[in-house]
C-alpha cells in the first residue's frame, strides 16, 4: 500500500532561512496524523509542500503516491484547509458551495448542504461577515465535500475560542470518519492533536524530531528515576532525550529501542504523550538554539 505521505531528504528554504531541513517521513495509510511543534517550527511549510502550494528546495515529497498537485485528479484527492481558514470575503456561503461544485468533479452537494444546515450557516451571508468559528466550518465543508482521500488541516483551530475549537474538531473527525479519509492536522497545541490523532509527528527547529504511531511511541519510551549512581549504570548507546538532576535524584527520559529497562536500580514509568513531546521539543531547542543565535548575529 502506498504511503499517505513520503518525504526523502525534504528541505525548503525561504531566502536565507531554512524552514524545513532533511525531513524523512513515510506515513502509512488510514491514520489520523498529528503534526505538532512550536510556532515557526516548519509545520506550515511541510503542509504547504504536501498540498503542492510550494515546491521543495531539496529532496522529494510524494502524497498518495505522486507529486503533490501534479494534476487535477491528484488535486481532487487532497483537501486542504489553510492556516487562518481563508475564504472569499465578498462571496456568499452559497457562492462558495457553487465554486466547490464547479471546480471539483467529485463534489458531494448533499454532504455540503447537510453540513451547512447543521452548522446553521445562512447561504446568503457573505463569508467575510462570518465569525472565525463559522468561517472555519465553511472552509472545512469546502475541503471535505470534494470527497478527498486525504484531508490536510494547517492549524485550523488556532484562531478559535475553546468552545468553537471543540466543536470544530468534533466536526472534523466526523468528516474524516464519513469520508473514510486520512487526515493530517497541525497544531502548536498538543491537546488538540492528542484528542484525535493516532500518529504523531513532532517538528521543531525545522527538523522532524519524532514520528510514529502514538501507541508505539509510548511503548518505546520510559521515564527512569533513581540516584545519580544508579542512572550512570544505564547501558551505553541509549538515546537519552532529557535528563534532570535535583540533588541526588535524577530523572531521565529515554528511548528504549526494544531494550528491557524496567528491571534495574531505578524506577521505570510510562510517559504521558505531552511529557514525551515536551522532552523532544526541549531537546531540539537546546541543540538548535546555538546555531540559530549565531545565524542571527551574522545577519546583523
Amino acid at each position: 500500500m502506498t504511503p499517505v505521505l513520503e518525504a526523502r531528504n525534504l528541505g525548503r528554504r525561504y531566502g536565507g532561512r531554512q524552514a524545513l531541513t532533511d525531513c524523512n517521513l513515510s506515513i502509512p495509510q488510514g491514520r489520523v496524523i498529528g503534526l505538532v511543534g512550536p510556532n515557526g517550527a516548519g509545520k506550515s511549510t511541510l503542509l504547504n509542500l504536501a498540498c503542492g502550494l510550494i515546491t521543495p528546495s531539496t529532496g522529494t515529497i510524494e502524497v498518495l503516491g505522486s507529486r503533490p498537485a501534479a494534476n487535477p485528479a491528484h488535486l481532487a484527492k487532497v483537501g486542504f484547509v489553510a492556516q487562518d481558514t481563508p475564504v472569499y470575503a465578498e462571496l456568499s456561503v452559497a457562492d462558495h458551495l457553487k465554486m466547490g461544485a464547479k471546480l471539483n468533479p467529485a463534489w458531494d452537494a448533499r454532504l455540503a448542504q447537510r453540513r451547512i444546515e447543521q452548522i446553521g450557516l445562512d447561504p446568503r451571508q457573505k463569508a467575510g461577515r462570518l465569525s472565525g468559528g463559522r468561517r472555519a466550518q465553511l472552509a472545512l465543508t469546502l475541503a471535505a465535500a470534494k470527497r478527498p482521500e486525504l484531508l490536510i488541516f494547517d492549524e485550523p483551530a488556532a484562531a478559535l475560542d475553546p468552545l468553537a475549537r471543540r466543536g470544530f474538531l468534533e466536526n472534523l473527525m466526523e468528516f474524516v470518519t464519513d469520508l473514510a479519509a486520512g487526515a493530517i492536522l497541525s497544531s502548536h497545541a498538543l491537546d488538540d492533536v492528542e484528542r484525535v490523532c493516532d500518529y504523531l509527528i513532532v517538528l521543531a527547529e525545522s527538523r522532524v524530531q519524532l514520528a510514529g504511531d502514538v501507541r508505539d511511541l509510548l511503548a518505546n519510551h520510559r521515564r527512569l528515576t533513581g540516584s545519580r549512581e544508579a542512572l550512570s549504570k544505564l547501558p551505553s548507546g541509549l538515546d537519552i532525550i532529557r535528563a534532570d538532576q535535583t540533588g541526588h535524584e535524577g530523572t531521565v527520559i529515554v528511548r528504549t529501542d526494544g531494550r528491557r529497562l524496567d528491571e534495574g536500580p531505578w524506577t521505570a514509568e510510562n510517559l504521558e504523550l505531552d511529557e514525551l513531546v515536551l522532552a523532544y521539543m526541549t531537546r531540539a531547542s537546546a541543540v538548535g538554539s546555538v546555531p540559530a543565535a549565531t545565524a542571527q548575529e551574522a545577519h546583523r
Binding site: 502550494l53 498537485a69 489553510a82 481563508p86 475564504v87 472569499y88 465554486m99 471539483n104
Partner: peptide, 11 residues
C-alpha cells in the same frame, strides 16, 4: 487574502 490557498486546492 490568502484565498489562493483555497482556489489552488480545488481540482
Amino acid at each position: 487574502a490568502g484565498t489562493h490557498r483555497v482556489v489552488w486546492n480545488q481540482s
